[in-house]
């Protein structure tokens, strides 16, 4: 049995579930960001798998490029916010941060 579309979808579903697990259980803000990266990667695998199994439709690749670009933007801005929070609180546990300004 060869590798078909279903294999890629199941692979990306597993990656998605692990990313959701990291987002829910981690307390450290940087580790939550890593969970978000896993979720975005699983979405990209889906886009490109569907592109390949639809006669190399290039639209899926374009969507994946924009997802990668947005992931880079998101990490840069989120890390700036995390560094700012660390200056105020001296930790970045997302469950204890409850005010924007001290």
């Amino acid at each position: 049995m060869g590798i078909g579309l279903t294999h890629y979808i199941v692979l990306s579903a597993i990656l998605f579930g692990l990313g959701i697990f990291a987002i829910i259980t981690r307390k450290n803000a940087v580790l939550v960001l890593m969970g978000v990266e896993l979720v975005l990667n699983s979405a990209n695998i889906n886009f490109i798998a569907f592109a390949k199994f639809n006669k190399m439709n290039i639209d899926g690749h374009i969507a994946a490029i924009f997802v990668i670009m947005l992931a880079a933007i998101e990490v840069a801005v989120a890390l700036a916010i995390v560094l700012n929070i660390y200056q105020n609180y001296k930790h970045i546990n997302v469950d204890e941060i409850d005010s924007l300004k001290d």
Binding site: V10, A13, I14, G17, L18, I20, F21, I24, T25
Partner: peptide, 16 residues
């Protein structure tokens, strides 16, 4: 959290 993510994985895989 593990229950939720396993549920997500199983349902997406079942649909696929």
């Amino acid at each position: 959290a593990g229950l939720v993510s396993i549920l997500i994985i199983v349902s997406i895989s079942f649909i696929a």
